[in-house]
């Protein structure tokens, strides 16, 4: 039986200011699976996600595709885990869209010609090939998000970690992103507050509470158990 793509046991992490952000997390992700991470702000979701490619490092065991997440495995781990950050402006820093998408490939030692063609293929996959020579800061929020995703996809990761992917996106752009993600074969971890988006992309959910996993299961069950949805009812206005 193949090892899970992500295997986390007893993960603890405390920020330098003393905040216990993660307090004994156990988590697994199998190939092809997509999991939504729910929980209130500050519950530890993003901190947990940042441990998956060692942007943060706590106590406990984290394995990616069977490889322990330690300094000596960094290059392999970061090519297997692609992380899309909440604010695409943090991720897009090169002068043109194509150069930005090729950034990770060049860091992995891929030759410039091959990096350019892989980057272009990734841009085509997200429908942004026409913007290859544009400056990233001239794009709309939805376009930036797609380019950021292309920057990750170009590296052919096995796991996609998306931190609040619908932030700054209008509903049509959210729908486009959900369609795009559904069509990707990679396993996904989606940190989100957006229930509809999670339902469109993920099969199950994990609920974080004060640095611990309080529950996991089907999305509908988790949402119902923690009353984790805001449904606007026009009839409420009469009350």
């Amino acid at each position: 039986m193949p090892a899970p793509l992500v295997e986390v046991q007893g993960l603890r992490f405390r920020y330098p200011d003393g905040t216990q952000a993660l307090d004994g997390i156990d988590f697994t992700l199998e190939a092809g699976e997509s999991v939504a991470l729910f929980g209130s702000n500050g519950s530890g979701k993003t901190t947990f996600a940042m441990h998956l490619n060692r942007l943060l490092s706590g106590e406990g065991i984290v394995r990616i595709c069977g490889l322990p997440v330690v300094a000596s495995n960094m290059e392999a781990i970061r090519s297997k885990v692609g992380m899309v950050f909440q604010d695409a402006d943090s991720q897009l820093f090169m002068p043109t869209v194509l150069e930005d998408v090729a950034f990770g490939l060049l860091n992995c030692g891929i030759a410039p010609d091959e990096a350019a063609s892989n980057a272009l293929a990734a841009l085509e996959a997200v429908g942004m090939a026409a913007a290859r020579d544009r400056a990233p800061y001239h794009l709309s929020a939805g376009e930036k998000k797609r380019v950021a995703l292309a920057g990750i996809l170009s590296m052919s990761p096995e796991i996609l970690v998306l931190d609040e992917p619908t932030t700054f996106l209008d509903p049509p752009a959210q729908r486009t992103l959900a369609d795009l993600l559904r069509g990707l074969p990679q396993a996904k971890i989606v940190v989100t507050h957006n229930i509809r988006f999670a339902l469109a992309v993920c099969q199950r959910a994990v609920f974080f509470e004060r640095g611990k996993i309080a529950a996991h299961g089907r999305i509908e069950e988790i949402v119902a158990r923690f009353d984790w949805d805001f449904a606007f009812q026009p009839s409420n206005l009469d009350r």
């Binding site: 940042m50 942007l55 943090s90 950034f103 060049l106 860091n107």
Partner: peptide, 17 residues
């Protein structure tokens, strides 16, 4: 930004395409 760069394998040198 630095975290985002590290996440894509940055090791201190910007490469040109």
């Amino acid at each position: 930004v630095h975290r985002a760069m590290l996440a894509r394998g940055f090791h201190g040198r910007l490469q040109n395409l």
